[in-house]
Amino acid sequence: MAVAQVVALLRAGAPPAAAWSRALGVRVDLAGLPDADELAPVVGGAQHARSVVAAARLAGDVGAPLGGVLDAVSGALVAEAEARAEREASLAGPRATTQVLLWLPVLGALLGWALGADPLATATDGGAGTAAVSLGVLLLVAGRLWTGRLVAAARTAGEGTA
């Protein structure tokens, strides 16, 4: 959205330095390029700011209209943000399922206690109950680690390929 404001001012006839300054309030150098450090919080991070500055520099070097180049970069940044939001929405289900599965053993023990059983005594008797609880805890930890890795891999899938 921020880059689109600059594009609108450029298409209205404003010089690049004035467009950057008026639309986003960032300083520009003598070549009319915005300061990447000031631009970063406005456009969503240092990587996006470097992309916008590189596109502006490229437009100046090859003589392309800055508005058109920034419009294309803005479209790419919006598409990336939408993809990231869709990826996070897709991962909400697996994260919620992980949380539910982590609490199920605790709820099972509480339910057993409410029904009159003694889950603590069964878990610490040194026999089959202890073996079952130990195996359950190991499988719970393994499942949590595995799910965490899968979610982390899915979250970062596709990043860095642009």
Rank of each mutant, 00 (worst) to 15 (best):
W113P: 00
P34C: 07
Q5C: 01
G13Y: 06
T130D: 03
S74M: 03
S21A: 06
G25C: 08
V137S: 02
A157R: 12
V43I: 14
G45R: 13
A17D: 05
G93Q: 04
A49Y: 15
A117V: 04
T98E: 08
V26F: 04
P119M: 02
V151A: 02
L120I: 12
A85E: 10
V73G: 08
D61R: 15
L91C: 02
R11G: 01
V53C: 03
L110M: 14
T124W: 02
W20T: 01
L145D: 00
G112K: 13
P105W: 08
L111I: 12
E159S: 08
A131M: 11
A109R: 13
V151L: 02
L139E: 00
S90T: 13
V62Q: 13
W103L: 14
S74V: 04
A79S: 14
V78I: 14
P15Q: 06
R144L: 10
H48Q: 15
R144T: 10
V78C: 07
A36E: 12
V141H: 09
P15K: 06
L33K: 01
V151W: 07
A96F: 14
Q47H: 12
R50H: 14
P16W: 05
P34A: 10
A14I: 00
A154G: 10
V100Y: 11
A92Y: 06
A153C: 06
V62E: 14
R84G: 07
A154E: 05
A59W: 09
A31T: 02
E82P: 03
A49H: 15
Q47F: 11
A96D: 08
A117S: 08
G158M: 06
V42H: 14
L139Q: 00
T156W: 01
A89V: 00
A85C: 01
V3F: 01
R149L: 10
L138D: 03
G148W: 04
L10N: 03
T161F: 06
L77E: 08
Q99W: 13
R95G: 00
V151N: 03
G93P: 01
G44W: 09
L9P: 07
L139N: 00
A132M: 09
L140R: 04
A4R: 15
V52P: 11
G13D: 00
A46L: 15
A85T: 09
G108I: 14
A123S: 12
A85G: 03
D29P: 01
Q5N: 14
G129Q: 03
L138C: 07
A59T: 11
A96S: 09
L110A: 14
A56H: 10
R87P: 05
L107A: 15
V42K: 15
W113T: 10
E88D: 13
L70N: 09
G68Y: 13
E159K: 10
V52I: 14
V106K: 05
V137G: 01
W103R: 03
